Amino acid sequence: MNNKNILYQHGTLALLVPGLLEGTITMGELFSHGDTGIGTGQGLDGELIMLDGVPYQIDSTGTVNLVKDDFTLPFATTHSASFNEFSDFNNLDMSSFEQTIIEKSNSQNTFFSVITKGEFSKMKTRAVAKSNKPYPTLVQTAKEQSIFESDRVSGTLLTYYSPEVFHGVAVGGCHSHFLADDHSIGGHVLDFQLEHGKSEIQVFDTLEQHLPINNSEYMNHNFDNDSIGSAIDEAEK
């Protein structure tokens, strides 16, 4: 049985920066470490959100697809859901929501996840089309992203918080993916206005970081000149 206090992460955001986008774990393998999470496919093939043991991919056309066990990912975060009651939120934009959950959690120096189910008067997300070798950098890929917007939608917002000291391993601060109840919109969240939502929280005391040591490009890459922090800020926030 998986430990509810462990956050499992395969790969790092840093390896995406120079374009190390080869899939190095399968969805089937990832699900042995949790039933809830976020990630992206090989070549940044869409944005993934895993809810209740079901993996969904939002592709560059905005279509929501179910992901098979052999689908590969270069980067993903997962955990075994055991959320606790947290708070109801009303009339918050994305910045205010993130600031509020950080303050209310009293957990800014560890990892936690917040799942929010509610009504959104605005939702703006993105997804990226799959690229092939030679893979472009993260920033280059992000410039080709597809943007999706909805003025009123019900759905699930899954947010992971990482302490700023881990920026590069993950996104320092909050990183959210979304899926509408009717699958009309989803992906990596760029902005939203939460009209009303009920949030639950799960705090982790352990980060299990799994690295793709069988991937020679990752093992031999020199990250010294990759400007990791600024590239992640530009592409992810």
Rank of each mutant, 00 (worst) to 15 (best):
K4E: 13
I6F: 10
I6N: 13
L7Y: 01
Y8P: 00
Q9H: 02
H10M: 04
P18K: 04
G19L: 07
G19H: 01
L20W: 10
L20P: 10
L20T: 07
L21A: 08
L21R: 03
I25V: 15
M27Y: 09
G28Y: 09
G28S: 13
L30H: 03
T40V: 13
Q42M: 06
P55G: 13
Y56C: 02
I58Q: 00
D59F: 05
S60F: 11
T61Y: 01
T61P: 00
G62C: 05
L66R: 15
A76M: 05
H79L: 11
A81V: 02
S82T: 01
F83Q: 11
F83G: 13
D88K: 08
D88L: 09
N90A: 14
N91S: 12
S95N: 14
Q99G: 14
I102M: 05
E103R: 11
S107L: 00
S107D: 04
K117C: 02
G118N: 05
F120S: 01
S121R: 07
M123T: 10
R126M: 14
N132Q: 12
T137V: 10
E144R: 14
E144L: 11
S146K: 12
I147M: 14
E149P: 02
D151T: 12
V153W: 00
S154F: 08
T156K: 10
L158M: 12
Y160D: 11
Y160K: 03
Y161V: 06
V165A: 14
V169Y: 14
V169E: 12
C174P: 06
S184F: 04
I185L: 04
K198G: 03
L207D: 11
L207F: 07
Q209C: 09
Q209N: 12
H210T: 02
H210Q: 11
I213Y: 15
N214P: 02
N215R: 11
D224E: 15
D224S: 13
D224H: 05
N225G: 00
S227P: 03
S227Y: 14
S230L: 09
D233L: 08
E234A: 15
E236V: 15
E236D: 10
K237I: 08
